[in-house]
């Protein structure tokens, strides 16, 4: 009976273990190695028992502390989208395979579908909502618009979060480096070349180039 299942905080149950499985299988590439998996702050001390039933937590999202109660197995993505109505991160595969829910945890890109909300409690969570606004975009967002680097746009928020993080680490990338660096993100409309063009343009702009 699902109800009686106990979940332990920080024990790396469920999602994280699952993600490692994928990573070992060589399917999820790019970000997973550098982000979601590494993010898990494995608490080695005797874990506090959480649940069953809802648990009160506080999440620091885009600098604001939000209090909510979640079932302990609720992912960060579901907590954001379905509890806090912060919907920029998208739910596409729900299995750490597509990157559409990419956000930053303590500045590092992570898949929100692969992190439990309770595990993100002590972290700084940054979502697409805190980057630019339609009236005041970041250089990268402007470059996406300039290059029409989105078709349906459903992958775009996750793509932007991955690309911004990539550019922080790689301010002068080559085309191949961009392609490898954001390879964990999927665009079903096939706007890949446009996205790479946008990242390269943004890299130039951010350095003050033409």
């Amino acid at each position: 009976m699902a109800d009686s299942t106990k979940t332990t905080r920080g024990s790396g149950l469920s999602r994280r273990g699952f993600l490692k499985g994928i990573s070992a299988g060589g399917v999820a590439t790019g970000l997973v190695g550098g982000a979601a998996v590494q993010h898990g702050k494995v608490v080695e001390a005797a874990p506090a028992v959480v649940g069953p039933g809802d648990t009160a937590i506080k999440l620091k999202i885009n600098g604001e502390v939000k209090s909510l109660t979640v079932e302990p197995r609720t992912t960060l993505l579901d907590a954001l989208r379905n509890r806090l109505d912060i919907t920029g991160a998208k739910k596409v595969c729900d299995r750490g395979t597509c990157g559409a829910c990419t956000l930053w945890i303590d500045g590092q890109p992570a898949y929100a579908c692969s992190v439990l909300a309770i595990d993100a409690e002590d972290s700084e969570i940054t979502t697409i909502e805190s980057l630019g606004t339609p009236e005041r975009m970041t250089a990268l967002q402007q470059a996406f618009v300039n290059n029409d680097a989105q078709q349906c746009g459903f992958c775009t928020p996750g793509m932007i979060m991955a690309c911004e993080a990539f550019l922080k680490e790689n301010p002068s990338p080559t085309r191949d480096q961009v392609r490898d660096g954001i390879s964990g993100n999927l665009c079903r409309c096939g706007t890949y070349h446009g996205i790479i063009d946008a990242v390269l343009e943004a890299a130039k702009t951010m350095k003050g180039g033409a």
């Binding site: 630019g132 606004t133 975009m137 989105q150 746009g153 775009t156």
Partner: peptide, 10 residues
């Protein structure tokens, strides 16, 4: 795309 700004900012 006329909705580009909305898309890229979520």
């Amino acid at each position: 795309k006329t909705t580009g700004r909305d898309i890229v900012t979520g």
